[in-house]
């Protein structure tokens, strides 16, 4: 039996395979590192950090829905300084083994994004930074970062000169036209795009007549969102010339293939890590099996290979 080539070139980054674990479903790698050797992964995107520590939302923070999960964690994190001092150093061995460590930045103001991005970039502890612009509240105003094209361009352009590593901008699906947002991120200076973040939703307890989540609304993820995400990856890849990290409901190697065909270069595993601690390495194995079974020599042959009618 031959061996399929799993490596991909994701913008300026070389990935040993296209599978990345997603921020918010993987902590800082420590917990699931006790279940398997993380060097099997193309990379990990660690928990989003903010300029100051964030305590997170009141419970309940998670609700199960058909084919998915709603969450409203609220970016609970120790803050960028503690992440640099304590959480990222233990991951540096992974980078030597060719598994990328990617930071994730969230914020509440342009200034927050700038401070956090600069600190993470200057730390030298990450191979790239993902900018999470899906937060709904801009300090002092009703604007949102991820859903207004001009704001997207402004926040990305703000961090761009402060970021010496490749910059991935994570797009919200809660918009009328994701292509417009993708173009704005590109115009601001994004090197790559990741999509989609969670879809805003809610769950209600019919007996108590209350929302299940302490935060009332939350973000939907899991297999339920995959068709939406695939469509958005397809649309953006047709319109924007930036490499895409496709995210949404990936639970198998075949799901990864579908995202590659839709135009993604790398593929995220998120909710699957919550459903099964061994999901990510299993998915890497299933991707390789698919390639061997279909006699595909390199995973790169699949990227954007969708046959349209």
């Amino acid at each position: 039996m031959g061996k399929a080539r799993l490596g991909v070139q994701f913008g300026p980054l070389k990935l040993k395979n296209p599978i990345l674990t997603m921020s918010g479903t993987f902590g800082f790698g420590q917990e699931l590192g006790e279940y398997y050797d993380l060097s099997v992964l193309g990379g990990i995107i660690v928990k989003a950090v903010t300029a100051k520590p964030r305590i997170g939302n009141p419970p309940p923070r998670i609700a199960e829905t058909a084919g998915g999960i709603l969450n409203a964690i609220g970016i609970q994190n120790p803050g960028v300084d503690a992440a640099i001092a304590e959480e990222l150093p233990p991951l540096q061995g992974l980078r030597k083994e060719g598994t990328l460590v990617i930071g994730s930045v969230s914020g509440h103001s342009f200034e927050d994004y700038n401070i956090t991005t600069k600190k993470l970039s200057d730390s030298g502890l990450v191979d790239a930074i993902e900018l999470n612009i899906s937060c709904p509240n801009l300090k002092g105003g009703g604007l949102t970062f991820g859903t207004d094209p001009a704001t997207v361009k402004k926040v990305v352009a703000g961090v761009r000169p402060l970021c010496d590593v490749p910059l991935i901008v994570k797009l919200s699906p809660n918009v009328t036209d994701i292509v417009e947002i993708a173009r704005s991120a590109g115009a601001g200076g994004a090197d790559m795009l990741s999509l989609i973040n969670t879809l805003t939703g809610m769950a209600i307890d019919a007996v108590t007549r209350r929302p299940i989540l302490g935060n009332v609304t939350g973000g939907l993820s899991g297999p339920a969102v995959k068709p939406v995400a695939l469509r958005m990856v397809h649309e953006v890849s047709q319109a924007v010339d930036l490499p895409i990290l496709g995210i949404g409901g990936v639970i198998s190697g075949v799901d990864v293939v579908e995202y590659l065909l839709a135009g993604a270069t790398a593929v995220g595993v998120g909710t699957a890590n919550i459903l099964d601690p061994l999901a990510a390495p299993r998915i890497v194995g299933e991707l390789e099996e698919f390639l061997l079974r279909e006699k595909i020599e390199s995973v790169e042959e699949l990227i954007g290979g969708l046959l349209l009618p």
């Binding site: 918010g24 479903t25 993987f26 902590g27 917990e31 699931l32 279940y35 997170g56 939302n57 009141p58 419970p59 309940p60 923070r61 998670i62 609700a63 999960i69 969450n71 964690i73 609970q76 299940i212 890590n273 919550i274 459903l275 601690p277």
Partner: peptide, 17 residues
């Protein structure tokens, strides 16, 4: 007791103050 997601500690779903 709290509504739980992963069981491994990665999702921060089952928070208690």
């Amino acid at each position: 007791e709290e509504r739980m997601g992963c069981g491994t500690g990665v999702c921060l779903g089952c928070a208690t103050a």
